[in-house]
C-alpha cells in the first residue's frame, strides 16, 4: 500500500514538473513560432504575386516586404491580396486568392493569383501541406505549379473552375495535368481551388 502511494505521488509530481516546464517553454517560443507561421503566409502571397524576394529572409524582413507591396482587400467572407503597383513596375498586376481544404493526409493551404479582371491564372503557391513526399507532395514542385500560369479561370461552358486531369490528352484552356500516383491529392486540390475561384468569380462578376 505504501509502495503504491509512493508510485502515485511520484508520477503525479513528475507529471506536474514536466507540464510546468513545457508550459514555460511553450509560452516563451509561441510568439516566434507565430511570426514564422505568419511569415510563411506572407511568403506564399509574395511568391504567387511574383514579387521578387529571398525565401531565406527572416520573418521580420518578409513582413516588411509584404507591407510595402501588398494591399489587403476585405470582402464579406473573403480577403483578397492585391499587388500595389508602385514599386515593381515590371511585375504584372495581380490579385492573390487564398484557398484551403483537406488534402489526403492533412490540411492544405495555398494561394492562387489571378489577373485583375479575374479571367486568367497568374500563379499558384502552397503554404502548408502534409502530403506524401514524392507523390502528393509534388504539388509544390515547379513543374506542377507552372502549368497553371496563363490558364483560364472559366471552362468552355462559362462555368468557373479549373480541371486537373489524369492521362495524356491535349489540355484545354482551363485544364492541367494531374500528378501521377497522387490522384486523390490532385482531386482534392482541384476542389479547393475551384471553391475559391467560384467564390471570387461569383462575388465579382455580375
Amino acid at each position: 500500500m505504501k509502495a503504491n502511494l509512493y508510485i502515485v505521488t511520484y508520477s503525479f509530481v513528475l507529471a506536474m514538473v514536466c507540464a510546468l516546464v513545457l508550459t514555460g517553454v511553450g509560452r516563451f517560443t509561441a510568439p516566434y513560432q507565430e511570426a514564422n507561421e505568419a511569415a510563411d503566409r506572407f511568403r506564399g502571397i509574395l511568391e504567387v504575386l511574383s514579387v521578387p524576394f529571398d525565401r531565406a529572409d527572416p520573418a521580420e524582413q518578409v513582413r516588411e516586404i509584404y507591407r510595402r507591396n501588398v494591399r489587403e482587400i476585405e470582402h464579406a467572407e473573403l480577403t483578397l491580396y492585391e499587388l500595389v503597383p508602385t514599386e515593381h513596375i515590371d511585375v504584372e498586376p495581380a490579385v492573390a486568392v487564398p484557398f484551403s481544404g483537406q488534402g489526403l493526409w492533412g490540411p492544405i493551404h495555398g494561394f492562387i493569383s489571378l489577373s485583375p479582371d479575374l479571367s486568367t491564372i497568374r500563379g499558384l503557391a502552397f503554404v502548408y501541406h502534409e502530403e506524401t513526399p514524392g507523390l502528393g507532395g509534388e504539388i509544390v514542385s515547379e513543374n506542377f505549379r507552372r502549368q497553371f500560369e496563363g490558364k483560364s479561370t472559366v471552362g468552355p461552358d462559362e462555368r468557373p473552375g479549373i480541371r486537373i486531369l489524369p492521362g495524356t490528352d491535349e489540355r484545354g484552356p482551363n485544364e492541367v495535368d494531374a500528378i501521377t500516383g497522387a490522384t486523390m491529392t490532385s482531386e482534392k486540390v482541384e476542389d479547393m481551388i475551384n471553391e475559391a475561384l467560384r467564390e471570387v468569380l461569383t462575388e465579382h462578376l455580375p
Binding site: 516546464v21 513545457l22 517553454v25 511553450g26 517560443t29 516566434y32 513560432q33 514564422n36 511569415a39 510563411d40 531565406a56 520573418a59
Partner: peptide, 14 residues
C-alpha cells in the same frame, strides 16, 4: 524532445 522541437520551430523554422 518537445523542448527541442519547440525551439527548432521558433528559431530554425525552415
Amino acid at each position: 524532445v518537445i523542448v527541442c522541437d519547440q525551439v527548432l520551430k521558433a528559431f530554425y523554422w525552415e
